[in-house]
Write a protein that binds this DNA or RNA. Structure first.
Ligand SMILES: [Mn+2]
Ligand SMILES: [Mn+2]
Ligand SMILES: [Zn+2]
Ligand SMILES: [Zn+2]
Lengths: 143, 143
DNA sequence: AATGCAAATGAGAACGATTATCATTCACCT
DNA sequence: AGGTGAATGATAATCGTTCTCATTTGCATT
């Protein structure tokens, strides 16, 4: 019971087609948590599961609208997607190796609501990324 | 003494040309604090100060590298620039009217350093935008 | 299992933002 | 004023993404 269930798709109003199952399966495989359209496209190509690039873009957007995926706009121009696990979190991105770490800090979260309220805004959502240097062994950390 | 000082440019290693003075002057005029390349281009056109779009892009990047401007990547694809006033701040963007409000919260700032440190990162910088609905009179706030 | 049809796909064109090219013009130092 | 290397601007090129549309597919119905 660890394969992409077509029910997942039917439940959100999307007919379960081969391209959609492959793309969802790739995210569920857990190999790579945060992937761009290009990442997904190349990954599928590499395993012989050819899916058109246009379809990848379309499906990723549909999955996001259906709540299956979450889209992030990190620096670098391209959108990145990840499985929606229900719980919100923010990201730390290593400027050297691109490694992404996730975190959640309730103090930061509540402070944002407070600040917004004081300025007369009703928060919809937010985007927080910390850009830093990580200490991973393979990281070509220069400083 | 409220006009763009050519010294500003010389001091950061940029020769003071007409296009550069016009662009810097526009930001210093205080009319609009956050502007995209397109915003700057159109603003200059509207006052007869024609500057090529390529030059606008080039100069904005140069000003950012020189520390005169700060670049932000809000949602919507295009980069937005603002005068660098030395002090860091984050933004609340209204999803309806695009109105941008600035804020600084030391609790949020310090919490970020702490979170990063615990994960073994040395913070370089960060990007925080709150997307919300504002209460401005002219805002076509739908909800 | 064959049929029908709306929905999905994929190749390629189109698009918007940004960057690269390169011939012409300009800022600034003799 | 003249010389030179940097800056400009028109345009082509690039990148990520969306659009178009002819073809294929999922799936409900015979
Ligand atoms: Mn994540
Ligand atoms: Mn600002
Ligand atoms: Zn958060
Ligand atoms: Zn901040």
């Amino acid at each position: 019971m660890d394969k992409s269930q077509p029910e997942n798709l039917k439940n959100v109003g999307l007919k379960s087609t081969l391209p959609r199952l492959k793309i969802l399966g790739l995210f569920e495989s857990g190999q790579e948590r945060h992937m761009s359209a290009e990442d997904v496209y190349k990954q599928l190509l590499s395993t012989g599961d050819d899916v058109g690039l246009a379809t990848v873009y379309r499906v990723l957007t549909q999955f996001q609208q259906a709540g299956l995926l979450v889209r992030h706009n990190f620096e670098g121009g391209k959108s990145v997607f990840e499985l929606n696990q229900g719980k919100h979190h923010d990201h730390i991105v290593c400027l050297q190796c691109g490694h992404v770490e996730e975190f959640y800090d309730s103090a930061i979260e509540s402070r944002q609501k407070k600040v917004a309220a004081e300025l007369g805004f009703e928060v919809h959502d937010h985007s927080l990324q910390i850009y830093a240097d990580c200490t991973k062994a393979k990281c070509p950390n220069k400083r």
